[in-house]
Design a protein around this nucleic acid. Structure first.
Lengths: 336, 336
DNA sequence: GTGAAAGCGCTAACAC
DNA sequence: GTGTTAGCGCTTTCAC
C-alpha cells in the first residue's frame, strides 16, 4: 500500500520521454488529426508505458469543456427515474462524459441552488420533472445548456413521453369497461405534467361522454396515495387515475385497508409503469413509456446542442410514444 | 436569452473592484480566518454585487481537492441502493461536496474502468457492493481514497449492515415456525455478502439443528428469482432464503405461477427490505437495515479519512444493526 | 507537422 | 494581514 506515492505522470513527463513538445503530446492525445500518425503512435506508446492518464480537471480549465453532465431528478427514490437515470448514464458514457446525479427532492429551491452550485463544472444540465417556474428555467437556460425531461418549454430541447394519446387510451379503456365517471388525483401543482395529464383526461372524457373531475393536488408518493384513495372513494366516481404509480400503489393499499376492493369497487390507473407496479395485488394498470430512451435522448440532445441552435430557437422537442399496460387494477364498472 | 454573454467574473474582477490583491480575495472566500473581518466583509459584498461564483474546477487544480466524491453501486435499478444513494447525497451535500453516481452493472471490469476514468477528479470513492477482488480493491486504495459499503477489507473504512445477528434472527424465526430445513439461494460469487450470509445462515442453522443447503449462485435480480424458485422447490426444503429482495420477489411470483403457495408450501425470506417488498403478495419477510445511514456514514468516513490513518491501518469498520421485518411470506412449516 | 509561450482561475508559499 | 509570485496540468494561438 502507498507504494505509488510519486505523482501521476503529466504530459510533460510524456513529452520528455518521447522527446517532443508538450503541445504535441497534447495534440496527439486529444486532437489526433493534427499530428503525423508516426508521432501519434509514439506518444500513445510512451503514454501507455508511463501509465499516463489525462487530468480531466486540468484539461477542462482552459478548454471550458468538462465532459460532465448533470442529471437532476425530482425524487431519487421514485423508481420511475430508474430507467431515465440508466439511459442517461449510458448515453453520457458513450459520449465520453461523466454523469452527475442530483436529487431535488420536489423543491424548486433545492433544484435552483444545486444547479447553481455546479455552475461551470458541468457542460450542461438535464432536468427531469423540474418544479421550477418557466421563468426560472429560462433564466437558467440563459446561463447554461439545459435539456428538459417531462416538460416542454419553447426554445429548449426536451424529451417527454406522450400524454395526449396516452390519456385518451386510458379513458377509452375505462369507457370500454362501462365507467361513466373518473377522478384524476392530481400531482404537485408545480409539475408540468399535472396540468398536461388533466387536460388530456378531461378532453378525452368529454369526447366519450364520461364525467371527469380533478382532485388534489397530492404529493406523488405512496403515502399521499392513502389520502388520494379516501378522496377518490368519497367522490363517487368508479374509476380513479392517479398522477403516478407511487400514488396509485398507495391507493391500492388504502382501498384494501378500508375493506373495499379494486377493481370491483374502484378501478385504479397509474402512470409510469414503475418497478413494483406489477407486483402489487391487483397488479396496476398504468401508462408506461420508453424511459431509458428518454434518458438517453435527453443527454444526446443536450450534448448535441450547439450554442447557435439555442438562438435559432430550433431546439428539438421529442415526444416518445406511451403505451397502456392493462393489468388487474381496472375492471368492469360496478353496477350502481 | 443569451443576454449574459459576458464571462463570469473571476477573483481578479472582485480584487480590482475591491482594490485588493487576488490572493486576499481568495483567502477571504475560502480561508476566512486569515483576513481581517473588515476586508472579508468588503470582499463578500463586492463578490455578491458582481455575482461572483467560484469556479470549482480552477480551485481544484492547484489545491488537489475537488469537493466531489463518487459513489458506485452494483446495479442502479436495485431499489436497495435508494437509501444508500440518498444518504450519501445528503452527507456529501452537508460537507459541501458534489456526489457523482456510477453504475457498475455487476461487472468488476466496468467498476475498475469507471473508477480509473474518474481518477483525480474526485476526492474519493465510495464503492457499494463491489465485485472486484480484494487485491484489486487494495490496489485501488493505494492510489485513491476508498470507503466500502457492504464489504469489509482490512485497512479500509467500511460500513455494513450486520449479517451475523441478522441471519441468526432469520433462522430462529424459521425454526420457531417449525421449519427443519432451509436453502440459501446464493447471490453472485463475487459479492462479498454472498459468503457472509451463507456462513451466518449455516452457523445459525447448525445451532438450532436445522439443515441448511446453499444453492446457486444466481444473479441478484427478479428474473433470476424464477430460476431460484424452481431450484428451491425442487430441493425439498420448506424455507428459502434468497440473497436479496429482488430475487425473493421473483421467487414469490414464480411459486404462484407454478400453482404453489407462499408460505403454505414454501416460506420465503429476502434481504434489504426494499421498496416493493411490502406490496407483493404475500408481502415479503426480509432483513432490513438503516441504509440511508449506511450511505451517510460511508461518505462521512471517506471524507474524514486522512492520509495518515490509512497508513496506521486504523480505518473504521462500521457495522450497523439489521432488523428482521416479518411479513406474510413466512409461515408455519408444512406438515410432510 | 511541430514547438514556444501565454494563459484558464485559482491556491499557496513566501515576503513584507 | 496583505501583496507578490509561482505554479496546478492542460489547451491553444502563433510562429516556424
Amino acid at each position: 500500500m502507498a507504494r505509488d506515492e510519486r505523482k501521476r505522470p503529466t504530459i510533460y513527463d510524456v513529452a520528455r520521454e518521447a522527446e517532443l513538445a508538450p503541445s504535441t503530446v497534447s495534440r496527439a492525445l486529444s486532437n489526433p488529426g493534427r499530428v503525423s500518425s508516426r508521432t501519434r503512435e509514439h506518444v500513445l506508446a510512451v503514454a501507455d508505458r508511463l501509465g499516463y492518464q489525462v487530468n480531466s480537471l486540468a484539461s477542462a480549465l482552459p478548454s471550458g469543456r468538462t465532459h460532465t453532465v448533470a442529471l437532476f431528478v425530482s425524487d431519487i427514490t421514485n423508481p420511475h427515474f430508474f430507467g431515465i437515470i440508466r439511459g442517461a448514464e449510458h448515453q453520457a458514457r458513450a459520449a465520453g462524459c461523466t454523469l452527475i446525479l442530483g436529487d431535488t427532492e420536489e423543491s424548486p429551491e433545492v433544484e435552483a441552488r444545486n444547479i447553481e452550485r455546479l455552475g461551470s463544472s458541468v457542460d450542461g444540465f438535464v432536468v427531469a420533472a423540474s418544479r421550477m417556474t418557466d421563468e426560472d428555467i429560462e433564466a437558467l437556460a440563459g446561463k447554461h445548456r439545459v435539456a428538459l425531461i417531462s416538460r416542454q418549454l419553447a426554445g429548449l430541447p426536451s424529451v417527454i413521453v406522450d400524454h395526449v394519446d396516452g390519456t385518451r387510451e386510458i379513458v377509452e379503456h375505462l369507457a370500454a369497461l362501462g365507467h361513466e365517471s373518473l377522478v384524476y388525483l392530481a400531482g404537485p401543482r408545480r409539475a408540468w405534467l399535472t396540468d398536461q395529464r388533466w387536460r388530456g383526461l378531461a378532453q378525452a372524457a368529454r369526447r366519450v361522454g364520461m364525467s371527469a373531475r380533478r382532485l388534489g393536488p397530492f404529493q406523488p408518493t405512496m403515502r399521499a396515495g392513502a389520502n388520494a384513495a379516501d378522496v377518490a372513494l368519497g367522490s363517487g366516481a368508479t374509476a380513479a387515475v392517479a398522477h403516478n404509480d407511487l400514488m396509485a400503489i398507495g391507493m391500492l393499499r388504502r382501498v384494501a385497508e378500508r375493506g373495499m376492493r379494486v377493481p370491483d369497487d374502484l378501478s385504479v390507473v397509474g402512470f409510469d409503469d414503475i418497478f413494483g407496479s406489477d407486483i402489487s395485488s391487483p397488479a396496476l394498470t398504468t401508462l408506461g413509456g420508453p424511459f431509458e430512451e428518454v434518458g438517453r435522448l435527453a443527454v444526446d440532445s443536450l450534448l448535441g446542442m450547439r450554442e447557435k441552435s439555442r438562438e435559432a430557437g430550433r431546439a428539438e422537442q421529442i415526444v416518445l410514444p406511451s403505451h397502456l399496460v392493462i393489468r388487474g387494477s381496472t375492471g368492469k364498472a360496478p353496477v350502481r
